[in-house]
Design a binder for these strands. Structure first.
Length: 549
RNA sequence: GGCUCCAUGGUCAAGCGGUUAAGACACCGCCCUUUCACGGCGGUAUCGCGGGUUCGAUUCCCGCUGGAGUCACCA
């Protein structure tokens, strides 16, 4: 009877019961094995690469038959940031992650299992706590911060488990009368679980990624409701994931140690626990210690998802990388299914690695190169146009000034069966195509050292005379060979190798001279195509410039 | 410190009692080639240590070491 008095005292305005909410959140009518997952960030406005990874995993786990939703965990006002939700939603969408349900912006959401924003669910949590109080499973605790830290100090000195439990839980058996007196007196309190855990109890559960995990049972009287009536993460997790029918909780593995609390909460509340999949964090080599550590928002620019957008890594390429990290067999699948959508790949939580992988920027770059190599000129153009619009006004101006020209540049060695794998990120494009634009061209960067200056100049002068811009690709190379032969170079590498002493070099070296003059560099895509795109005037101009230099 | 997880090349990793210990990135070499790439072929390089169990351990068990996580009215 006292419990009932207590629950009324604590929650006089809560009229709905747990059963009411159970009825309001009926089971989802999903296919037999369909999974329900979620991504549940705090709306800090900062999308961490690790968070993106977690969201990615949750979305892939749900797949097309399941439901993936976005829940905003904003129970801590101190962490809140303006427009954090919309920032999060937009960040995810850039990477193709669009939740089936949940928050859409600060004020809107979609789906029938909401609200999906915890700050709007306070009465729900309180209804469940109220019920626990009625059952004598929860109680108000009036300890002050000072008292609690004094207890902790004592416990640490005595080398016993720190926290509020057993003899340290001094309000565990507080009467309704005393509670009323204190409340009337203006004292603040939290509501704690009256933990049924036994000191020597053990629990075990099967993690979908890590396998069987065994741990001591929870004996702490954890806080359910903070003094402002708002739930703690633990309690909100238990209630929300139950009501929203989450089947698989995917989250960072820093949560493993609180699983005993969660399991206990679910048991006390009469909920069936979800399956857990604890994801190992993406690590970073720490230059200072030489060891590994989590990718840090503070120290690592690449921890922010915005970093990749700025560098110009296509979101699709980042997703490809994420998937190779998540399921290493994805790479093999991708090689065998070059043009398939990633959605066709059978992602498995059980294939995830148990240990944290080191973030590999070099690998990302390679994945991105391969990804971009499959794009056609149109796609590359619009990506570069969009990227430069945001991050490189100079490049953007060139792109839009002559769209056709830019597209012809991007079409070189692209869209064929063996596409060139050159661009890794959009920020590389400017330098890569700089010689096509006089505004960007910075002169000859260096000559190959196997051709003397006299020979070079002679070659260039002669080439300027014979250059035929209207010639076809088939006619072009024989012309180079002809020029080579005239000047004492072999027509082919093979011919040169047979008698190196009788030649100055071979046709390739001659082409190299022309390439350096026209583009300023030793390494470019197919020269004939480049000259065709550039136009006769620019080609001749470059050759003459090189001669004068 | 207590509790917990993890441990194969420089990196990501396959492996699940017997293998020449896959594959990818990076690196090196060769081939192809008008250059650069792409591609093809090949190469360097890995089972942390010590005990068991076993005819036989990278694989199973224990210990050690190392790394990571967690011990809030933050998530």
């Amino acid at each position: 009877m006292d419990n009932l008095t207590m629950s009324q005292l604590l929650f006089p305005s809560i009229t709905k019961t747990a059963a009411d909410y159970e009825a309001a959140y009926p089971p989802r009518g999903l296919k037999e094995r369909a999974k329900v997952t979620r991504f549940a960030p705090s709306p800090t406005g900062f999308l961490h690469f690790g968070s993106l990874f977690a969201a990615f995993i949750a979305a892939k786990t749900a797949g097309k038959d399941g439901v993936f939703y976005l829940r905003i965990e904003d129970t801590d006002k101190k962490r809140e940031v303006e427009n954090g939700v919309i920032g999060m939603v937009n960040g995810l969408r850039e990477f193709g992650i669009v939740p089936d349900e949940g928050a859409v912006s600060e004020t809107e959401e979609k789906g029938c299992y909401g609200p999906y924003t915890q700050s709007r669910r306070t009465p729900i949590y309180q209804a469940f706590v109220k019920e626990l109080v009625e059952q004598g499973m929860a109680y108000p605790c009036f300890m002050t911060e000072e008292e609690i830290s004094a207890v902790r100090e004592k416990q640490e000195a005595a080398k016993v488990l720190p926290g509020i439990y057993g003899e340290y839980a001094i309000y565990r058996n507080i009467t309704a009368e005393e509670a009323k007196k204190r409340i009337d007196n203006g004292e603040e309190y939290v509501v704690r679980l009256k933990s049924p855990g036994r000191p020597d109890g053990r629990i075990s559960f099967k993690d979908e990624i890590k396998g069987k995990i065994e741990m001591p049972e929870n004996i702490l009287d954890v806080v359910l409701l903070k003094k402002d009536g708002t739930p703690t993460y633990h309690f909100a997790h238990a209630v929300d994931d139950h009501l929203m029918h989450t089947t698989h909780v995917t989250r960072g593995d820093e949560w493993i140690s609180s699983v005993p609390i969660h399991l206990q909460l679910q048991r006390v509340l009469g909920f069936k626990p979800p399956k857990y999949a604890h994801i190992a964090p993406i690590m970073k080599e720490d230059a200072e210690t030489g060891g590994k550590r989590k990718l840090s928002k503070r120290k690592d620019p690449e921890a922010a998802v915005s970093f990749y957008a700025e560098a110009g890594y296509p979101a699709g390429a980042v997703s490809e990388y994420l998937m190779t990290v998540a399921n290493s067999n994805y790479e093999d699948w991708r090689r065998a299914n070059k043009t398939e959508s990633m959605d066709k790949f059978d992602f498995k939580l059980s294939k995830m690695s148990k240990a944290g992988a080191l973030f590999d920027m070099v690998k990302l770059h390679d994945v991105s190169k391969t990804y971009i190599s499959t794009m056609n000129a149109e796609e590359v153009y619009s990506a570069v146009e969009e990227w430069s619009g945001k991050y490189d006004a100079g490049l953007h101006a060139l792109m839009t000034a002559d769209e056709e020209y830019a597209k012809r540049i991007f079409s070189i060695e692209r869209g064929n069966k063996k596409p060139r794998k050159d661009i890794g990120k959009w920020s590389e494009v400017k330098d890569y195509i700089s010689y096509f634009y006089d505004e960007l061209f910075d002169g000859v960067r260096g000559w190959a050292d196997n051709v003397s200056k006299e020979d070079r100049d002679a070659l260039l002068r002669r080439y300027a005379e014979i250059y035929d811009h209207s010639g076809s690709a088939e006619e072009w190379f024989p012309q180079i060979q002809e020029l080579a032969a005239e000047a004492g170079f072999a027509r082919s590498p093979k011919e040169y190798k047979q008698a190196p002493e009788s030649f100055k070099g071979h046709a390739g070296d001659v082409a190299g001279v022309i390439r350096a003059a026209v583009t300023g560099r030793l390494s470019t895509p197919d020269l004939y195509s480049i000259m065709q795109v550039m136009g006769r005037d620019k080609v001749m101009e470059r050759i003459h410039q090189a001669l004068e230099a």
